[in-house]
Amino acid sequence: MAILSFSELEKKCTDENKPIYEIALEEETVLSGDIADVIRLRVLEDLLAMKDAVKHGLTSEEKAISGWCGDDCVKLVKKFAERPSLFGKIFEKITMYALATAEENLRMGRIVACPTAGSCGIVPSVIIAAAEERKIPEVQQVNGLLTAGMIGLIVSNKVQLAGAVAGCQAECGVASAMAAAALVQMLGGNTGEILNAAALALKNILGLTCDPVCGLVEVPCIKRNAFLAVHAVTAAELALCGVESKIPIDEIVDTLKITGQLMSPLLKETSLGGLAKTKTALELERILHSKNDKA
């Protein structure tokens, strides 16, 4: 029987005295017919692909087809080497890795959709940066990614994870909740802390719209990956200190869904409103179309 809510998940974890990632493995075993080790291996493949994307993205300055974006990560790499970030090494790595992955995506590099391609930098940046700085072994990184997957899966049972359906709250927002949960898992938090971290992350991005310029996964999507990766860390830190979300996560997910329904279609991946209709965006659109016609 599928787990359709976080309260069911929490109850199962408590009753069976198992962490979320174990439950995730069991559920996937039933669904796919594969043994747990095979599933872990598939998750590891995803993790390694994420690391590859970061590695490529850190050094590339290649622009997207549009010619707008693709050289911001390298700016961070250079500048942080001269002037360390106020927040320290982990912050540097998270922002760099998030941009590296999102830029790799826009230049048609190989990435892992997590949960979507537009939000592909958030979960990897948090997992990989934390693992490197805290020397967290690979097996625990896989546990983190499994935990993230379980969070995303339960949200996706209630609301489709697409900007066109519920705005960016359902893409980068959910990715941030997934990353927060992964981080708490990797830092040794318990089920309650993991769910609180996801709740806090999700609660604080409700209403985020999807208004990409020209309909491309570039502006504002790329930089948003860095912002929501850091957002995930805030949620994880608060949860690990014992801060609890007053509104339970299931109710936050319902709110996300309803907020998505209330959101104007102009702000749901149609590029008919928001940033996509600013003066500058319209000018970029004009230039892009003249480029397109020449191609």
Partner: peptide, 21 residues
């Protein structure tokens, strides 16, 4: 029932799951 890999996959070339993959 949906798979875990519906949210942590596919490995794909970007930039868009709908428009590219």
């Amino acid at each position: 029932q949906k798979s875990l890999f519906s949210v942590i996959s596919p490995i794909m070339v970007g930039p868009s799951s709908s428009h590219t993959a």
